[in-house]
Design a protein around this nucleic acid. Structure first.
Lengths: 353, 353
DNA sequence: CTGAAAGCGCTTACAG
DNA sequence: CTGAAAGCGCTTACAG
């Protein structure tokens, strides 16, 4: 039977310090410090006495205090600034960072920016004021120059997902343009000539790159870019669904798109919703950028250009730790390939006119 | 045109301290401290001088140092121990915690335990050694008694998702038993008498409670509990798919289940996969515990008992901050209701024999 | 309104 | 093998 302490009546017991442990064990603070840090050169008897005192006092070393004094100044924590901890992309990335950090016994401070540059700056500042050893940032602002002071102070910095502006630093990105280009080529391969582009906010660099890939593929295929088939600034499932419905109204007149390239997760899902509502999911081809869970349980199964957020996180974290280990080589720009996953929706041919 | 500093050649510039700022501004450290902390009673001229020095030196106050000295000892950071930062349940919960913490200008340290008690303890210890102001923990171990020392030291602690063992503390849980019971009742409502249970590892408390709800509903409906229709210890999509396939082989002999209650996300998805493979998705009813994205885009749409991880995180964080604000009332056990979302798969009637 | 001294909990740099 | 003194970057508790 375990004792149940009642927090309502339980008096707080102040945390024991290294000094308390030293007093109880009858040794100096320095000796306790040696035991806590696993340094050798302490007689077994003293080690025992210290261990006992630690256990009886529930002593927990104060890592902030030790970091303050230590010459390295390392806090064994890194900060991760991401778009939204709740979205699958950010959370897969974060988890991969955690796995790398965990091996090094480093902790993660994490925060969401929600496409808000003020948040980006506030988080970076808050992390910096806690003296994190390094920073992984998915930048949203138009200018990351404000981070130069941190880099100059020796805090390594790796950007993910989007390239930083106004600052030369390591970054790990998906090859957005190439992925988008592949998508359009696959659609053209099965005979489509009127391929719509449904995209996120045009000023987001990744959206811009995907649109560039779309345009390039059209050019390479000798297909016209029809402005009526291009919709930007879609940011929610509902936006995308409405845009898809509007786009497909033109289907009857022989000028509507016969295929859709959706440049982002939520846009893809909105497009699917609309296609299902219109009963067109088996007649209009669709390839989305970004994989998502259950894409292969839908009917038709959804073809996608898959990114690898987990790999992005892993590579970024490893680069960061390399910098922490003293690598001062030139900033790297690592482009991660995308994977074309054809599951069905992208292989639907255009209806014979 | 922005200057691009090159990290390879850029010499590190040691971080300025409060002392440096004081020297440059020609005031005492105490005056700088007053300005940094927004205390009044400093002449505008000195405020200006200090601000200028701060800006020229890119001074960032060291919050660890100030927390060390401050009487409150607050670090303005809380630790969050979750099952897996990459899964939708954990990440929605984390995000909600972040939103509450953000209002209080408090940062989040987060880590995944992956159903491993050693990880749980290691994370708690790492957070404690950094003197987080509070802890939110989704416990996996069989005994959380080891946390008593932290509570006694005055670190508030709120458990989420699962009840702690061997320790009386605040917790926020879904009403798992009631939710599971609802699911079985809904299936019985449309005429099912042979309802299978597909469950996660039986020793996980939440799985146990969901199984209890299943059993209770069968009793209430006067339905027999057929051991052949109960499968425990399913932990992956593949496990669940195999179990479902095995279960449904008996369909032909009139003794197989006509409906399935899947007690967890991945199990539900595995069941759907198997049903689709067998072409039975429109003939066998299915209700899953836990909602998931795109459940309403599948065919048939998937009925679920939805939890609210976001609400769970919000409530837990608010409880934690209440404790931090000095509330020393008795530990609370908050039960969050589940929502029955009937979308189609749960309303499929049994085939007429 | 301002600042000099002491101290938070640790480690460093010594000396023995 | 062990420990006393100084100091990391800040705030506290004073005194003026």
């Amino acid at each position: 039977m375990t004792e149940h302490a009642d927090p309502a009546t339980m008096p707080y017991r102040p945390r024991a310090t290294l000094r308390d442990v030293a007093a109880m064990a009858g040794v100096s603070m320095k000796t306790v410090s040696r035991v806590v840090n696993g340094e050798n050169g302490v007689t077994p008897q003293k080690v025992d006495a210290v261990r006992q005192a630690i256990s009886r006092l529930d002593y927990r070393p104060n890592l902030s205090a030790s970091a303050l004094r230590r010459s390295s100044g390392r806090t064994a924590a890194i900060g991760t600034v991401l778009e939204d901890l709740a979205n699958p992309f950010s959370s897969a990335l974060l988890r991969a960072v955690e796995d790398v950090a965990n091996e090094k016994r480093v902790l993660i401070l994490a925060g969401s920016v929600d496409e808000d540059q003020q948040r980006e700056r506030a988080l970076v500042r808050a992390f910096t004021e806690r003296r994190v050893d390094g920073l992984i940032v998915a930048p949203v602002g138009e200018d990351q120059g404000y981070l130069r002071a941190e880099m100059e102070a020796g805090t390594p910095l790796v950007f993910v997902d989007r390239q930083p502006q106004g600052l030369l630093a390591d970054c790990v990105l998906s090859d957005n343009e190439s992925g988008a280009r592949q998508a359009v080529h696959r659609l053209a391969d099965v005979g489509h000539r009127r391929i719509a582009y449904l995209g996120d906010l045009a000023l987001i660099p990744t959206a811009e790159q995907r649109f560039a890939g779309y345009q390039r593929a059209l050019l390479e295929r000798g297909l016209p870019l029809d402005p009526a088939h291009v919709v930007h600034d879609l940011h929610t499932v509902d936006d995308a669904a409405r845009a898809t419905t509007a786009l497909l109204r033109g289907l009857g007149d022989g000028n509507g798109p016969t295929a859709i390239f959706a440049s982002q997760n939520l846009v893809t899902i909105g497009a699917i919703t609309a296609l299902q509502d219109l009963g067109l999911e088996d007649s209009v081809a669709l390839i989305g950028f970004d994989d998502f869970p259950l894409a292969d349980l839908l009917k038709p199964r959804v073809s996608v250009i898959a990114q690898n957020p987990s790999e992005m996180g892993r590579v970024a974290a490893e680069l960061l730790f390399q910098r922490l280990d003293g690598d001062r080589g030139r900033p790297q720009r690592i482009l991660l390939p995308t994977t074309t996953v054809l599951r069905g929706s992208g292989e639907i041919p255009p209806a014979v006119p």
